[in-house]
Design a binder for these strands. Structure first.
Lengths: 224, 224
DNA sequence: ACCTGAACACCGTTCAAGT
DNA sequence: ACCTGAACACCGTTCAAGT
């Protein structure tokens, strides 16, 4: 009665893990989205999957590897349209990619703290970089400048993303700090207090514009 | 024999904590410098101070507050020379401050991961921002632009600092990724592989130049 | 009035023991 | 061959009990 002929597709790979990696990663991201990066413990994850922590270690050799894949999952929510991007010209293409990356991270604000463990090196992150480098090389930037451009843009986005989470409480704390500036002989800070907080996406656009302006100038300088 | 007259300076404040806050913070920074951010546990810190964890809670209401002060301690290692900076002109002054911030964080690479908990709001961080805003306002930037400039520069430095720690292992991992790019039809990545890794301070200077160039252009556009 | 050991409710990781 | 409960060595935080 139990004589099952292990035929066809599963013959060599019988005994596969019943919880696919994809589901583990998706569930992990869900926990992070819902309850924050700190809430992602292997215990909680295992419980949510009706599994055990030890079982998770069959799929990931440690917590860092799991997190790596969670990050890349975030980057994969919308595929990069390489051809469309190239049609835009390098400047707009860079702006689009940086903004896309920012929006991706913004839609998963709790993922940001995870980024400090490592530079993203998952397949989706690599694909994005590949497109960015293509665009820059096609535009005539030298390889050594192109890689610096990409690194600068990536770090800029990261610097923003990293503190996306605390937005609300931070604003309150910052407002308090600015409010007190009058008492503390911080004249310049006080002069500026009326203009904070700056909405985050406006701040992002401002900085991105600076970078792209600088890039354009650098390009025209080197190859006129 | 135990009749000590509690005279003069300590009369009202007798019973002070025998471990001054300063020493707690300095010891905490030392632990982070020596053994990494993860090694800074309240247990280890208390032990190093011949005290107990519960005693630490008399000085800091939680771990976050301790970390806040450790960060600010880092920023305070060299005082900002406001007058000297103003003599440089806004562009060089901004470059000097950003570089100074970067070098400070670079000399305590393990502190970087702590930064993600909060935007630095300690007295040293506030003093630095005050000087930066002074310089920008004096140069004719409007308050609303000045605050955006400062925010952008600060985020850029932070984006760099955040990943200062993993420098060596990261380079190895990245090199491997670039090495494999040939096999994976990542043409642009492969073309650029010979030029990585970029030394971190060169990458920093590159990005900072872009930002300052962009700033100069924005300034000349708005007030010609 | 200040300090502290011990407890509480958690971690990531490992491994012997089950099926 | 795969899975898992329980253990190990840690956390941050709190509090009753000591001096």
């Amino acid at each position: 009665m139990n004589a099952r002929s292990d035929s066809a597709s599963t013959s060599r790979t019988r005994g596969r893990p019943p919880v696919p990696k994809e589901r583990i990663v998706a569930t992990a991201l869900k926990i992070v989205d819902e309850d924050g990066a700190d809430a992602l413990s292997l215990r909680v994850l295992a419980q949510r999957l009706d599994s055990s922590t030890a079982t998770l270690y069959r799929h990931f050799s440690n917590r860092a590897e799991l997190i790596n894949q969670v990050i890349d999952h975030t980057f994969g929510s919308v595929p990069v349209q390489a051809d469309e991007l190239r049609g835009l010209g390098w400047e707009e293409a860079c702006r689009a990619m940086a903004t896309w990356m920012f929006e991706n991270l913004r839609s998963h604000p709790n993922v940001a703290p995870l980024l400090l463990a490592q530079v993203p090196t998952g397949p989706n992150a690599l694909a994005l970089r590949e497109v960015a480098l293509q665009v820059l090389l096609d535009a005539g930037f030298s390889p050594s400048v192109a890689i610096r451009c990409y690194a600068t843009l990536a770090r800029f986005v990261l610097g923003f993303a990293i503190q996306l989470n605390g937005e609300d409480p931070e604003d309150a704390a910052l407002a308090e700090v600015y409010g007190k500036s009058g008492e503390n002989s911080l004249a310049a800070t006080a002069a500026v207090a009326a203009f904070v907080p700056v909405p985050l996406d406006e701040e992002f656009r401002f900085g991105l514009d600076l970078l792209l302006t600088g890039l354009a100038q650098q390009r025209s300088r080197h190859e006129p």
